[in-house]
Design a protein around this nucleic acid. Structure first.
Lengths: 335, 335
DNA sequence: CTGAAAGCGCTTACAG
DNA sequence: CTGAAAGCGCTTACAG
């Protein structure tokens, strides 16, 4: 009804008790049945809502977990966020999201901002960890968990980039491909740019007479489309292995525009396991990461850390190769 | 440094001034150059960060805008959120996100939760507005803006669903299609389920001898895939007009699985303008809504409302038909 | 320009 | 079970 905000004093007065009694009622302290009823009534009638700021000011601690993400419109980020949100809700914590639009400075700002808001813990979906990050973590004195990247000084939740890269390499070889292009991303991104590639490379080393070229592009579909066009024209690989599904989507388009049949004329694979890879035609063979699971684990871990419990320094999230129609079996063709 | 949290009193003591002077320094009040320097020094050395709760407790008002969204992993939601976030940041406000996973109860909870946190305003991406919503809005006494749905009692930012539906209808007719299937969603969703369909229907009414059937599905790709398979088998339409791009993606897959060529054997259109519709092959003809713009406008409007400024009860966001390769021109074929 | 004091709305020992 | 009082960290008139 409140033209005016109700305070705990108002409630106390209306119920004919002391403020402390109302507070006790609110926080589940011991209150007699009769008092309880009186207070309850007043609260319902007034629609009283306690002031969170005053509460937190006293309690000296919030149940808010801050999450810093590089982008809002990425499949990986969205799914991870969903996992975090779900788990945090179950654990009775709140999630605060800060989107940095892939701007490193804003990432730092967000971290300090969260500290100012006295969040209990921070989950960071980082692409790179700089010295400035390390300094920030030290300064704020708040538990932090990294998702998607590894750093020995910080708690991390990582995807098995190396291992999945290796598995993809093995798979591609098994299918008989020997003229291979790998379309990756900047090495500044250790997980995607380095580990994923290194795992793949490792698998290929185990075979002779295999021709592989490594190219670099950005995370954008359009850029991948352009790059792929060049690669196809110049090197005519039998397969382009893409470091993300998004890149694979760009390559797919490039191939279609050139009139190439997939997988007969060109095979393509991705990493990620985005929903859309299943619904396009032909379906994209890719590595599926379990982003939502990862988010849930990250949430559980950060809450443990906040509560002073023990957590492994690094937790691995699983992955799975999903075989669909975008890779040609060259072995069969040879027979 | 702080093993212990610094407070404004500590800073005052260390700088040899009064708390109020420090506060004034912090808030840009008048402080002499010398005092300024002293305080500045102490703050830098201690890494002092003001307590937001105490600040808000006094100020009686936050600069936080709460945003309620039905899902995190939807193109429309993500883009809208990006627009809101960007604009809010520019306006010096903070964005708080609450994801409801398409659960109406959680939508209500979120609204009350935001009220408890004393957000200055709320942006709601709703799918339906119930009486419980209306009651909540009345109770909380906080400015609210609806995005994507219209309600005469509330400020709204809407997409031109009817108009774009109409334009799509005209386009489909122009291309010579006369055996049409429309694959829509529940009418509980007024914008997408009703208005978009009604606009489309209206366009078709203006022509005779046109055969159109309306079907209903969910927002899920997989469900659309199943439905489309049935529709194709039973009615053999020359085109399936889908109420969202997501649905269109499912239909596209269904067609591919049946070996139909697009657009020769079956034409398909969507609504939304998701990035992926451009990169798939053939490209999907669709209506593009400007979600990010809409988010920005919503953000601007909610801030105006918070500041007591005037805002139109309903604001329309624009749209654009994007013609790509998924629609066959039947007129040419006839000739 | 500067400081002492009151107060924001709540919680938490401490008595009773 | 209940209440009076102190205090969380800040801001804001009000004097000076």
């Amino acid at each position: 009804m409140g033209v005016k905000e109700m305070t705990i004093s108002d409630i106390a007065k209306l119920a004919g008790v002391a403020k402390s009694t109302v507070s006790r009622y609110l926080n589940g302290g011991s209150v007699s049945e009769e008092t309880k009823r009186k207070i309850e009534n007043v609260i319902i009638n007034t629609g009283y809502i306690p002031n969170t700021f005053a509460q937190s000011l006293k309690a000296k601690r919030t149940n808010i977990i801050g999450t810093v993400i590089p982008r809002l419109d990425s499949y990986a980020a969205a799914k991870t966020l969903i996992g975090i949100d779900e788990e945090l809700r179950a654990l009775n914590c709140q999630m605060l999201i800060s989107n940095t639009s892939q701007d490193l400075d804003r990432e730092l700002e967000s971290i300090y901002g969260f500290a100012r808001q006295k969040v209990a813990g921070i989950i960071l979906m980082a692409t790179q960890i700089t010295d400035a990050h390390l300094e920030a973590f030290k300064k704020i004195q708040i538990p932090v968990i990294l998702v998607g990247q590894l750093h020995h000084e910080i708690y991390s939740l990582i995807h098995q980039d190396y291992e999945s890269g290796y598995e993809m390499g093995k798979y591609v070889l098994l299918k008989g491909h020997r003229n291979i292009a790998f379309l990756g991303v900047t090495e500044k991104d250790i997980a995607v740019g380095v580990r994923r590639k290194e795992g793949f490379k490792k698998a290929l080393e185990e075979v002779v007479d295999c021709n592989v070229r490594f190219h670099e592009t950005s995370f954008s579909m359009m850029e991948a489309l352009k790059q792929a066009t060049l690669i196809i024209e110049k090197y005519k690989p039998s397969i382009i292995v893409c470091a993300t599904d998004n890149i694979a989507l760009g390559v797919l388009k490039a191939a279609s525009l050139k009139g190439l049949r997939i997988p007969e004329d060109l095979s393509i694979t991705g990493f990620g396991g985005y929903d859309v890879t299943e619904v396009i035609h032909p379906g994209l063979t890719t590595i599926k990461y379990f982003y939502k699971d990862a988010g849930q684990v990250a949430a559980r871990n950060i809450v443990k850390l906040v509560n002073g419990e023990d957590v492994n320094k690094v937790t691995h999230s699983k992955f799975k190769l999903i075989e669909r129609e975008s890779v040609d079996n060259r072995i069969v063709n040879i027979l």
